[in-house]
């Protein structure tokens, strides 16, 4: 219903959303340029352990308990966080859309089957499932992403199902059925584009949830040990919390900033895509 230019304008007029996108852009830029900013392996020991920040210009954020450059870990950790967040969110959105669309469009036993399965999955805490999956298949980064993606689709599925249930009765959809169009075409071309706005909003929260998930796994030492990760640094910093609290605090700040930025962007998208709700 919006003109092409109205949406970005409405989004950026929201100050929190504009700030959030600025922070997010910065994080993405750091993630993309990680090899330029910190060209060396971030997990290599480079200096004296527990070097405080702002004491050595070569290591502006200091070093951890093993003498690794915290700055390099943060920069490469941004790549891990964004990569895992986006990929896991893409997996869960895809699965959620497929399940929700099939359930909402076909109804009947397909709906019953898919939704009961979704509900069963929802009753088990996601972290428990991810821990179990990763414990079984091993802490490879690919499995971590898959595990996170495969537990977070349930809300997307329920949301998409609701949209499909409502939209399938809309008259423009009936007109396509009356014309004899195929189900897949109606689902993909007619209903899905109209069902997407809330999913897009939710996807930004999925990205932040996935980042937190990976951080939690890494904190527990269950994520891929060969990859720089904010959560892992926090977990390792825990042991020196009393003497060198900055080792855990710096990645903590990075996570908080990134997740907060993503949530602000999500809220802004929500307001921009659903302008009528804003005034309520």
């Amino acid at each position: 219903m919006n003109g092409g230019a109205a949406l970005p304008r409405r989004f950026l007029r929201n100050r929190a959303a504009a700030l959030g996108s600025l922070v997010l852009l910065a994080v993405v830029a750091v993630a993309l340029l990680a090899d330029v900013i910190a060209p060396r392996d971030p997990l290599r020991m480079v200096a004296r352990p527990e070097l405080w920040p702002f004491t050595d210009p070569r290591f502006p954020l200091g070093t951890d308990a093993l003498g690794r450059d915290i700055m390099a870990i943060i920069v490469h950790g941004a790549r891990t966080a964004i990569g895992i967040g986006v990929l896991a969110a893409a997996i869960s959105t895809t699965v959620g859309i497929a399940v929700g669309a099939a359930a909402g469009y076909f109804r009947g036993w397909i709906d019953d089957l898919l939704m009961r399965f979704t509900e069963v999955l929802q009753t088990i805490p996601n972290l428990v499932i991810v821990l179990a999956l990763v414990a079984v298949v091993g802490p490879d980064i690919v499995y971590v992403v898959l595990a996170i993606g495969l537990v977070s689709w349930t809300s997307v599925a329920r949301m998409v199902r609701g949209e499909f249930l409502a939209l399938r009765e809309r008259e423009f959809v009936l007109a396509c059925r009356a014309a004899g169009m195929g189900d897949l075409r109606i689902m993909l071309r007619e209903i899905l584009p109209n069902a997407l706005p809330p999913v897009i909003v939710y996807a930004s929260f999925l990205v932040s949830a996935a980042i937190l998930f990976e951080a939690a796994l890494a904190f527990l030492g269950l994520s891929d040990p060969s990859i720089a990760s904010w959560g892992r640094l926090i977990g390792e910093g825990r042991q020196t919390l009393r003497t060198s609290w900055f080792i855990a605090a710096i990645p903590g700040v990075a996570i908080v900033l990134t997740v907060l930025a993503l949530n602000l962007v999500g809220d802004g998208l929500n307001d921009a895509l659903n302008p009528r709700l804003r005034d309520q």
């Binding site: 219903m1 809309r170 008259e171 423009f172 009936l174 007109a175 009356a178 014309a179 007619e190 584009p193 109209n194």
Partner: peptide, 14 residues
């Protein structure tokens, strides 16, 4: 074929 009552709901807005 069918022609609907509500000309706003009858067309896909996109």
């Amino acid at each position: 074929q069918i022609v609907f009552q509500d000309p706003f709901a009858a067309l896909n807005p996109r």
